[in-house]
Design a protein around this nucleic acid. Structure first.
Lengths: 244, 244
DNA sequence: CGCCGAATTGACACGGTTCAATTGAGGTGG
DNA sequence: CCACCTCAATTGAACCGTGTCAATTCGGCG
């Protein structure tokens, strides 16, 4: 009688993951089913929790299905550098190499829900049976690497103004891929301190740059939501190129 | 009559590679032979040449056997960011992922000799037969990634003074691995402009920091050779940790 | 209503950049 | 062997982007 019967009722928890995956490769029905089955045992952790400690042996790979996290490293004197943001559809401890110790800590920025993704990594060991998942892991790794290089350029050769614009565009694109943003607006559950530590700036300066971007009618930002008022100009300002 | 007969006369071209590899895993005799055989067809390019263009489809993987190169990206306005230095024993286009487009250009800093390393990558596809080479590729990738994160921390959260100290220590360790440096002295065939572009600083400032390090009797640096006069202090200053 | 962390603001200090010369060193040709 | 050329290194001075310190205000929540 209803489409609910055709497509069994279930929480759409895997939607961001599936959307993100769909941008990386086409999945066969059996692969989609495999991903949907991950929803079974979700695990949850609160804001501030450490999903993975730096130097720890990497545990079974997980996928974020809701919430935000960061990968970061702390210097002995308390300075912090954030390497990347993790949003739904991103992996935690997903390294393809065998033995690896975690090169950075992973910290939840909000409440985060993850699912065990061991079966995906396992499936990708058999590219014939799971071409889509195989390709997704490869491409996702490639994109992660590209974004890390983007980050190096940002930190090394861009001004504070350019850095902020560039990061906002990156986050937008990533959230769009997960179906969590449109072209102009998206949630940003990060304090200015977090942004500062990601962009190699002080909190005070981040604050001033955001003011400037608001004054110039390039963005709006209240209560954890961003609106990009002029994405094209931001793109030009920051020399942004979509990854991949 | 001489040990030359036991170990056939051949140019020691693969020595840096073999030494570097030996720090990553123990190689079986057949694996060593496989590496030595690479010496067959060397290829050479002059300083300034582009070993690999950004965005180009990656060509067969190569290993540097002599000379230095950098991985870099250029911004449209001419700013440059160098991601990493490549020294003997390092790979060019060695990505484990299949399709990958080069994420950065690779440029020779000096005259560079490379050898085709396709057979190594091929060998690593059969971990049973070539456990050492397999492990080496994995570990080398892991270390590259760790060094890239180090670089992010340097750029984002260290002062110019710390950055220079940190980079010098990294280069020392890498050259030591290849048998091209001792604990205190090594060649540095890079102009101050190159150092500046690697560390996100201006040439003028790099110059001043080097002066300062010399004044403080921490380093010597003439005609492309560095002497670390107080490696321990440099290590403390820059919070340096050897990779891996 | 009151609390607390986050955001905001001003004043000031400083690290790092820019511009513009000048010096130095290696390489070439006469 | 010297004159010359060029590129890298060096230096000084002024400027400015960003950091630091210290309040103050705002906003969400119990």
């Amino acid at each position: 009688m209803t489409t609910n019967l055709v497509r069994p009722i279930r929480p759409q928890v895997m939607d961001p993951v599936l959307r993100r995956f769909a941008t990386l490769a086409t999945l066969a029905p059996n692969e989609i089913a495999l991903v949907e089955r991950l929803a079974g045992q979700r695990e949850e952790c609160r804001a501030g929790a450490e999903l993975l400690a730096e130097g720890a042996t990497v545990r079974p790979p997980r996928l974020i299905v809701s919430g935000w996290a960061v990968r970061q490293r702390l210097l002995p004197d308390g300075r912090r550098q954030i390497f990347s943001f993790l949003v739904p559809g991103d992996g935690v401890g997903f390294c393809l190499r065998p033995h690896p110790l975690a090169l950075a800590a992973t910290i939840a920025l909000t409440r985060v829900e993850t699912v065990d993704a061991s079966s995906i990594r396992l499936a990708a060991k058999d590219p014939e049976a799971h071409p889509g998942l195989t390709r997704i892991l490869e491409t996702a790794g490639h994109i992660d690497e590209a974004r890390l290089l983007d980050n190096v350029v940002r930190l090394g050769r861009q001004t504070a103004y350019e850095r902020v614009a560039h990061l906002l565009l990156e986050l937008r694109d990533r959230l769009v891929a997960a179906g969590l943003a449109d072209e102009r607006r998206f949630p940003l559950p990060a304090t200015q301190e977090v942004l500062a530590d990601a962009l190699g700036l002080s909190v005070v300066h981040i604050n001033r740059i955001l003011q400037q971007l608001r004054r110039e009618k390039l963005i709006e930002l209240h209560s954890g939501r961003v609106v990009l008022l002029n994405p094209d100009l931001l793109t030009a300002i920051s020399d942004y190129r979509a990854a991949k």
